[in-house]
Design a protein around this nucleic acid. Structure first.
Lengths: 186, 186
DNA sequence: AGGTTCATGTAACCCGTTACATGATTTC
DNA sequence: GAAATCATGTAACGGGTTACATGAACCT
C-alpha cells in the first residue's frame, strides 16, 4: 500500500474531482478563481497531470457532447482514485511534513470531511497539533542561542517562522473545538 | 538585466555564501542544522546547484588542502554573484509572490541586511505589507460568499490561509518598527 | 578491524514551467 | 468581421528527488 507516483497537484485534482465531475478547463478555472490559485492553472501542468491520473486508473474520462457548445472531456474519480486520496490523507503526520511547508498538509485536510468524515478530520488535527507543539521549541531554542549573532533581517525572518507555526497551532486548537462542537450535535 | 536561470535553491546558496566561504558539505550541514532545513540537504541537489552557479560565474571554487584533514572544495561569491543576489532581492513584490507561498519572499528578506542594508530592507517590508493588505480582502470576500456552501474542513482550511496572511501582516508591521528604531540610533 | 563521519560526485526519473499550436463558438 | 472565450493539447527545458557510488580519515 504505497502511494506510487502521484504529485501534490495530482492529489489536488483528485480532491476537487471528488465533489463533482469536471473537465480540464473547469479545473483550470477552479484553480484560478478560488484560493486554490496557489496551484498553477496552466494547461501544460493540468492536462498532462490528468492523463497520468487516468493511466493509473485513478480517474476515468468521457467525452461530453453538448449541442451548440464545445465538446469537452469530463473526468470522474474512480473507486481506486477515491481510495488513493484517502490513503494519502490518512498518512501519519511526521516532522518532515511540518518542515517542508504546511501547504500539503492543509491540502490533505481541506477535502477530509467529504472523503473520511469528521472523526478522521479530528484525528488529523490532533496529530497535527502534537507535531507542531513538538517542533516549535527547537526553533525557539535556536533563536535563543543564535539570535544575538544574527543580522536583524535574519533574526526577523526566523521570528516570522516561529510566529507562523504558532498561529498554525492556535488555528489547530480552534479547529479541534469546531469539530467537537459539531459532534455534540449528533 | 534579467535573472537568467537561478533556482530558489541557488539563491539560498548565494545568500549563505555571502556570509563566508563554504564547501558543499558545509552548506549541506548548514541546511540540516538550522531553520533553513526546509531546503533539502541531499548531495544530489546541492553539488549540481553549485556547479551551475560556477558555470554562470556567480561563485568561484578552489580546492583547500588541509594536512591530516580531507581536502575540500571551497566556494566563494563572485562580484557577479553578489550583484545577482541583490537584483533578485530588489525585484518588486507582486501579488503572485504572495500567492505562490511567502517562503521565497522571506528568503529574499533574510539576507537583506548584509547585501542591501537596512534602508532597502525597510522598503521591502513596506512593499510587502502593502501587497499583503491588498490581497487579504479578496480571500475574506471569497469566504464571505462561499463559506456557507463549503464543508467544515474546507472552510477551516481557508480560514487558516487568511489567518496566516494576517499574522504575516502583523509581523511585517512589527518588523518595520524594528527597523525604524534601529535607524533612530544612527 | 569495522563503523561513523567527512567529502564529493553521477545518473535515472519525474514533473512543473514556458511557449507554441489549433480550432470552434460567442460577442460586439 | 474581429476579438475574446472555450477547450485541449504538445514539446523543450530545467531542476529536484532518490538512489547509487567511491574513498579518505577518524574513533573504538
Amino acid at each position: 500500500m504505497k502511494g506510487l507516483g502521484v504529485s501534490v497537484l495530482g492529489y489536488a485534482l483528485l480532491g476537487v474531482l471528488q465533489q463533482q465531475d469536471r473537465s480540464g478547463y473547469d479545473l483550470r478555472k477552479f484553480f484560478s478563481a478560488t484560493p486554490m490559485i496557489s496551484f498553477s492553472d496552466s494547461p501544460g501542468s493540468i492536462y498532462p497531470a490528468l492523463r497520468r491520473l487516468e493511466e493509473r486508473g485513478l480517474v476515468k474520462s468521457r467525452i461530453q457532447e453538448r449541442s451548440g457548445l464545445h465538446r469537452r472531456r469530463l473526468y470522474r474519480l474512480t473507486p481506486a482514485g477515491a481510495a488513493e486520496l484517502r490513503r494519502w490523507q490518512k498518512q501519519p503526520i511526521v516532522r518532515d511534513d511540518i518542515i517542508r511547508g504546511t501547504a500539503e498538509l492543509m491540502l490533505r485536510f481541506s477535502f477530509m470531511d467529504q472523503s473520511l468524515g469528521p472523526a478522521e478530520a479530528l484525528r488529523f488535527l490532533t496529530a497535527f497539533k502534537a507535531e507542531l507543539a513538538a517542533y516549535i521549541p527547537s526553533l525557539r531554542s535556536f533563536l535563543e542561542e543564535n539570535g544575538k549573532y544574527m543580522a536583524l533581517s535574519g533574526r526577523l525572518a526566523l521570528e516570522n517562522g516561529i510566529n507562523a507555526y504558532e498561529s498554525l497551532l492556535d488555528w489547530a486548537r480552534n479547529a479541534i473545538k469546531s469539530y467537537e462542537k459539531s459532534q455534540e450535535r449528533d
